[in-house]
Design a protein around this nucleic acid. Structure first.
Length: 495
RNA sequence: GGUUUCGUGGCCGAGUGGUUAGGCAGCGGUCUGCAAAACCGUGUACAGCGGUUCGAAUCCGCUCGAAACCUCCA
């Protein structure tokens, strides 16, 4: 049996070349993918959801194409300097002091909450989820290599990456399009950075002062690794010196990923990543949603409807569908109207998937051209994971299904029925990763009860006892159960 | 200021140089006890101004507007 990746030419937009390129893995059928995960010092918000869902979609699709994917997504629990903290205190440590907790207590708390949110969004767990704090040794070893290679210098127990020297033999800016001359004039002089030779040099090891509570011993000082070391070290450890895909949000492009390339390149002698993929931001009134901007909406807020900007609550799957309705490289603008549109559209998609099961099957049924729809779905995904286009094609299938259902005497051939059922299953559940959120309890029991209720209402209607039939419909409506009367009986759906 | 993007019909959002994106909302019709659902039909959208072209929303230039990054950030 052939593998799907042989018949699907996958094209991805590589930030490195700013072009769409044919995706060719280093070691077919294996793929290594590293994605920058969250810094666990606060609750996950919509932006985290977009990054996670984007690369979940990619992970799922690569697997669907029969690739064997090792997906590494880190937990950042150390090393990020607070912007306005002169003493260089990192985010986790600061949060810990504020709440009088152990740093690892903060990490644990928010990691658990992050996982819960991701599970709600039906985001698959990565193959490996390494913590930066668990890889201090690997980071120290890598720093040693960089020092040995001569691309870093030590001052007062801190180690800095020598960007200027690196740029003489390599191109610092290869990913972000920046030129070092521009960096010189644009780097802000922050306090506490005066020990660097150049403003654009970055710390790969930082000496901790007395008050800094997260610290580790190293050959240079008691301190902590620099901002970008963890991804270089962990990516290398689990995926090798060079691997296929590195993902993350566009806001990480510079300096994070640019610096990662520089570090790994000098430590390992080769560029670490073949394809750089970046998801765009979610905006609110045209502005990036971000924790530091104070306009972030936590996922829990959205799921509960507990936020002044929310007209109602939105389910995790609504959020997932909303995000998948935009291509990952476009900004996506948040609004109640857009979310409600997504919610309705998704319900329609699920309903049609159920309706499919009720279609009349007939060997002699005319073709409905399922093959074309299938082709369009795969072509969309093969073109840089264009989920909105794939979804548009699925709605083509929805129209066909509903239209067959609406026209008495219409039927579908067994072959096409099977093909369509498989197609919908693949795309809705396996690739887009949606689930219907229904039947948390005993589905069989609920369905049985509903059939009885529907039958009683039907009998009332036949008696023209519309008082009773409307009462049933209204009471069920209060329970968010919607009855849908059709030519061949009544269906029900959670709304 | 530098780097990188973007500007599509009421809203969200795809898009190949010439053919319907799609969803939601709206309008007309069918169906229905009524409604909902569903189906059928329906929208002269591509910031502005030039240019290239037989033909451009799609290529080029300029203007206007917006965003991200240059500091932690998905």
């Amino acid at each position: 049996m052939s593998n799907r990746y042989e018949e699907n030419k996958l094209i991805v937009f590589n930030t490195l070349s700013r072009k769409k390129e044919l995706f060719v893995p280093l070691n077919i059928p294996h793929i290594g993918m590293y994605v920058c995960g969250p810094t666990v010092y606060g609750d996950a918000h919509l932006g985290h959801a977009r990054a996670a869902i984007t690369f979940d979609l990619i992970f799922r699709y690569l697997q669907h194409l029969d690739y064997k994917v090792r997906y590494v997504r880190n937990i950042t629990d150390v090393g990020h300097l607070e912007n306005d903290a002169d003493e260089g205190e990192d985010k986790i440590a600061q949060k810990a002091r504020l709440e009088e907790l152990e740093p690892m207590e903060v990490v644990q708390y928010y990691t658990v909450r992050y996982h819960r949110n991701m599970d709600q969004l039906n985001v698959l767990r990565p193959s490996i989820e390494p913590h930066a704090s668990g890889h201090i040794i690997e980071q120290i070893e890598m720093i040693k290599k960089i020092l040995t290679a001569g691309f870093a210098y030590e001052i007062n127990g801190s180690v800095y990456f020598d960007v200027e020297k690196y740029n003489r033999s390599h191109h610092y800016g290869i990913l972000s399009g920046r030129k070092i001359e521009d960096l010189i004039s644009n780097t802000r002089e922050l306090a506490g950075q005066s020990e660097k030779r150049n403003g654009y040099d970055f710390a790969i090891w930082k000496r901790a002062d007395e008050s800094h509570i997260m610290r580790w011993p190293s050959p240079w000082s008691d301190g902590f690794p620099g901002w970008h070391m963890e991804c270089s070290a962990m990516g290398c450890k689990y995926l090798g010196d060079q691997f296929d895909i590195h993902g993350g949000g566009m806001d990480l492009l510079f300096p994070h990923h640019e610096s990662e390339i520089a570090q790994s390149t000098v430590a390992n002698g080769k560029a670490p990543v073949r394809y750089w993929l970046h998801n765009n931001m979610i905006t609110l009134n045209g502005q990036k949603m971000g924790k530091s901007l104070g306009n972030a909406m936590s996922l829990d807020d959205i799921f509960s409807g507990n936020h002044p900007l929310l007209e109602k609550s939105y389910s995790p799957m609504t959020i997932r569908f909303f995000i998948l309705q935009a291509q990952y490289r476009s900004t996506l603008d948040f609004s109640n109207e857009a979310l409600q549109a997504a919610e309705k559209g998704m319900k329609k998609l699920f309903a049609a998937n159920e309706t499919l099961k009720q279609l009349r099957i007939d060997k002699n049924a005319p073709s409905i051209d399922v093959q074309n729809i299938e082709k369009a779905c795969y072509e969309a995904m093969n073109d840089d994971f264009n989920s909105p286009m794939a979804i548009a094609s699925l709605f083509e299938a929805v129209r066909v299904i509903n239209s067959l259902k609406a026209n008495e005497g219409s039927s579908i051939s067994p072959d096409e029925f099977e093909m369509l059922q498989k197609l919908l299953h693949y795309f809705i559940f396996d690739i887009l990763g949606l689930n219907s959120e229904e039947g948390t309890g005993d589905h069989g029991l609920v369905d049985g009860l509903m059939q009885t209720i529907i039958q009683l209402r039907q009998e009332a209607r036949i008696r023209k006892d519309f008082t009773t039939s409307d009462l049933i419909r209204n009471k069920l409506g209060e329970l968010h159960i919607e009855l849908k009367d059709g030519k061949e009986g009544t269906n029900w759906q959670m709304k």
